[in-house]
Simulated scan of single mutants.
Amino acid sequence: MNKKEDIQQLADRFFAGETTLAEEQRLYRFFRGDDIPTELLPLREMFVSLSLIGIAPDKQTTRKTTTQSRLKVSFRRKLFGVAAAVAVILAMSTTLIHIDREQNYCKAYVNDRLVTDKAAIMSSVAATMSDIGEAGQTGADRQLHDLFGSDDGNADH
């Protein structure tokens, strides 16, 4: 494995929180140097800045801090995951409620007038059905005659 691949793997382990203090020091020394591949140049400023911060006093403190950091990162990831899931559920619920309200409406034209009141529409429909029921067959024949203009009143043409 060449030096570039080795450093890339070490950087990947660094971002995963799996490097030792010695490995981190190796990364810092590498990025302070002049022989950095073009693909790794975007990481240079970050590692140089981190190298200037300093080193933990002992390995035991570093291990404890690393373990606590991993737990904090793990907790944050879970927290963000839960928050994202809640946000998605709320967004979907809001969207579904909006779609339901758009599709569940009552609209009809009664005597060339737009009516959106469900009670008024149902009243008009009931009155029309009652008129048709009272008129019987002759009412339907009359209506067909009015529509098609047949002279003999029969709809059998």
Rank of each mutant, 00 (worst) to 15 (best):
H98G: 14
T138C: 04
I7R: 07
T116A: 01
T94R: 09
S51C: 01
D34K: 13
I132S: 07
A56W: 07
T116K: 08
S124L: 01
D6T: 14
K107V: 13
V48C: 02
S93C: 09
A11L: 15
L43D: 05
K64Q: 12
M122W: 00
G153L: 05
L114P: 04
T19D: 02
T20G: 06
E18Q: 11
D100A: 15
D156C: 10
V86E: 00
V86M: 05
E24G: 07
Q143E: 14
I99Q: 15
V115M: 02
F30A: 03
I36P: 04
D156F: 11
S49T: 03
G17P: 01
Q103K: 12
R26W: 00
T19G: 01
H98M: 15
N104F: 10
M46G: 07
F15R: 15
Q60G: 05
I132E: 08
I55E: 13
S130A: 12
L79D: 10
I55V: 10
H145C: 13
R70N: 11
A126Q: 09
I99H: 09
L96N: 07
R76N: 08
N111H: 12
T67V: 12
T67H: 14
L21G: 10
G81A: 02
A127L: 12
A56H: 09
R13Y: 06
Q68G: 07
V88H: 00
R32Y: 09
H145F: 12
M122N: 10
R142N: 12
S51R: 00
M46P: 05
D35V: 04
V115Q: 06
T20V: 01
D35T: 07
D34E: 14
T61C: 04
A16Q: 10
V73H: 11
F148Q: 09
S49C: 02
D12K: 12
V86K: 00
I97H: 11
K118M: 10
T66H: 08
P37E: 07
L50T: 03
I99M: 13
H145T: 15
T94N: 13
F15N: 08
D151F: 03
F47Q: 03
D117M: 03
K4A: 13
V110F: 06
V82D: 05
Q9W: 06
V48M: 01
L144M: 09
I121R: 03
S49P: 00
V48F: 00
I55Y: 07
V125D: 04
I36K: 01
E134N: 14
S74M: 14
F31C: 06
H145S: 15
V110T: 06
R77P: 01
A87W: 00
D152R: 04
D112V: 08
R26N: 05
M129G: 13
A91K: 04
T38N: 11
D117H: 03
T62D: 13
E23K: 03
K72R: 09
P42G: 02
H145N: 15
A56K: 04
P37S: 06
V48H: 00
I89A: 08
I97T: 14
K59F: 07
M46K: 14
G81M: 01
I132T: 06
R101S: 11
V125Q: 04
E102D: 11
P57V: 00
D152H: 08
L90T: 10
L114M: 10
T38A: 14
L52T: 08
S123L: 13
T95H: 10
